[in-house]
């Protein structure tokens, strides 16, 4: 989704302002000339300059007929929008369901659902999800001892 440079610039300006505002309550540290607020403030000025330059450039582009937003082609294809949202949903699912459910079911569901949504044959999607999940769990969870969440596995041991 491409936005006019002026909009990007505006976002940077807002970000810079928020960052600078957040540094206001930082305490002074006696005996030190500069505190933890120095770098963030320098960066907010720098980001603001980039933002201003982009607004100027975007404004000029507007004059030459550049729209505020360029509507990307995929926005008109529902299945593509769904796929995009599913990837985001998959990460959210892992964040919220990973601990209570455990790695095994969550990984299986994510790989299987995404693979089917991407147009893979359901049979192969399920096979891939099963094999990949078990392989990752065995290699990282058991051999390399990454503390992957166990979740409902605890109920069975």
């Amino acid at each position: 989704m491409r936005a006019n440079d002026a909009i990007c610039g505006l976002v940077l300006l807002v970000l810079a302002a928020v960052m600078a505002a957040l540094t206001i309550p930082f305490p002074e540290f006696p005996g030190q000339n500069y505190g933890p607020d120095l770098l963030p403030r320098i960066l907010s000025v720098a980001l603001a300059i980039c933002g201003a330059l982009l607004i100027k450039r975007g404004w000029q582009a507007r004059g030459q007929g550049d729209p505020w937003f360029t509507r990307p082609a995929w926005l008109g294809v529902p299945i593509k929008v769904m796929r995009l949202l599913l990837v985001i949903a998959a990460l959210l699912f892992y964040i919220f369901a990973g601990d209570p459910l455990g790695f095994l079911p969550v990984s299986f569901i994510i790989i299987a659902v995404l693979a089917i949504a991407f147009g893979g044959r359901p049979f192969w999607a399920l096979v891939a999800a099963l094999v990949a999940t078990l392989a990752i769990n065995y290699f990282f969870g058991s051999i390399m001892r990454v503390p992957l969440p166990r979740g409902i596995l605890d109920l069975f041991v």
Binding site: V87, A90, L91, S107, I110, I111, L114, A115, F118, G119, G120, W124, A125, A128, A129, A132, T133, I136
Partner: peptide, 12 residues
Amino acid sequence: PRQLLIPIILMF
């Protein structure tokens, strides 16, 4: 197939 590869990469 990418349909299978991409979800697995995401899990990695």
